[in-house]
């Protein structure tokens, strides 16, 4: 595949205490895709992410960015870290500064950009996540969701090609999730590759193009979410299925099939449409 932006080849990783977290893991992420990484607690999602920007180095195997193996020298890391922006799970352990603005400027300042450029980027990224009005507020007073957004802004300010988010939706209310999703959609439309670790199967099914399913440090499945999330072994490993798949399974028992040419609806809107279409079919004959 020529359009692979990140590739893992037979990567293995053991934490210093001996825990094997990745085991012969091979996968690819397509350039410009929306990729969801799924797996139960401890499957190795976070460990995988730490490999993508070189914070962890594989014990065996190789990580490639584009066609080139990662360069673990200081200069290589400088480039990679701004290219692959990583947003961690817990906002409280990644906001370093007293004020929002100051925190977002942390990355660009470390990159040694000019002061004017830093200011522009800070303003742009705060605007992108809808936090421009809170630029001068102290970080420790923000709500959890606001902190998450500031974390994302802090990474966006480095202008990464790839945005990697570890469970960004966890702890957000429904409205905030919706808003974050639209922020991510905008970034995706602007050409960014977005990788998200999540436990939310419905979100993965509805939002992501590609899915990567991990089980005990290995790749279990990779491909279009609309396919792999319907597989039995995947559903077994994840301990569930997208709600839409469950609904269709039950409806099939009473002879209703929501699929249209084998295509199952992905979003709430599509589901409602399919139901309307079905009920119309029922009533016409």
């Amino acid at each position: 595949m020529t359009d692979a932006i990140l590739t893992l080849k037979n990567v293995a990783y053991r934490y210093p205490d001996g825990t094997p977290a990745l085991d012969n893991c091979s996968l690819t992420v397509r350039r410009g895709s929306r990729t969801a990484v799924l797996g139960t607690n401890g499957a190795g999602k976070t460990t995988l992410f730490l490999h993508l920007n070189g914070i962890l180095r594989p014990s065996a195997g190789q990580v490639l960015c584009g066609d080139n193996p990662l360069d673990y020298s200081r200069a290589g890391m400088r480039k990679l870290r701004s290219q692959v922006g990583l947003v961690f799970q817990n906002p409280d352990s990644q906001l370093f500064s007293a004020s929002v603005q100051e925190d977002v400027s942390f990355g660009p300042m470390n990159m040694g950009l000019e002061e004017r450029e830093v200011r522009t980027r800070v303003a742009e990224s705060l605007l992108a996540v809808g936090m421009a009005a809170s630029a001068d507020r102290p970080v420790h007073n923000l709500s959890y969701g606001q902190k998450k957004r500031v974390c994302i802004a802090g990474v966006l300010a480095m202008k990464p090609e790839i945005l990697v988010l570890d469970e960004p939706m966890a702890g957000l209310d429904a409205a905030m999730q919706q808003e974050l999703m639209s922020v991510l959609d905008q970034l995706h439309a602007a050409g960014m590759t977005i990788i998200i670790a999540t436990h939310d199967l419905d979100f993965a099914y509805g939002w992501a193009d590609d899915g990567i399913v991990m089980e005990a440090g290995r790749l279990l499945a990779q491909g279009a979410t609309t396919e792999i999330l319907l597989r039995d072994d995947v559903q077994m490993a994840l301990g569930g299925a997208p709600l839409i798949a469950e609904i269709n399974r039950r409806l099939l028992l009473i002879g209703i099939d929501l699929r249209d040419n084998g295509y199952l609806p992905r979003s709430k809107g599509e589901l409602l449409q399919a139901i309307t279409a079905q009920t119309r079919q029922e009533s016409t004959p």
């Binding site: 870290r81 409280d92 352990s93 370093f96 942390f106 470390n110 990159m111």
Partner: peptide, 23 residues
């Protein structure tokens, strides 16, 4: 927290350049 913080600082290029921008 210190451990997580150090990782997060790495991820945001801390120490990548000889000179940080001064604001």
């Amino acid at each position: 927290r210190g451990d997580a913080l150090a990782t997060a600082m790495d991820a945001r290029c801390y120490g990548a350049c000889a000179e940080r921008t001064r604001m």
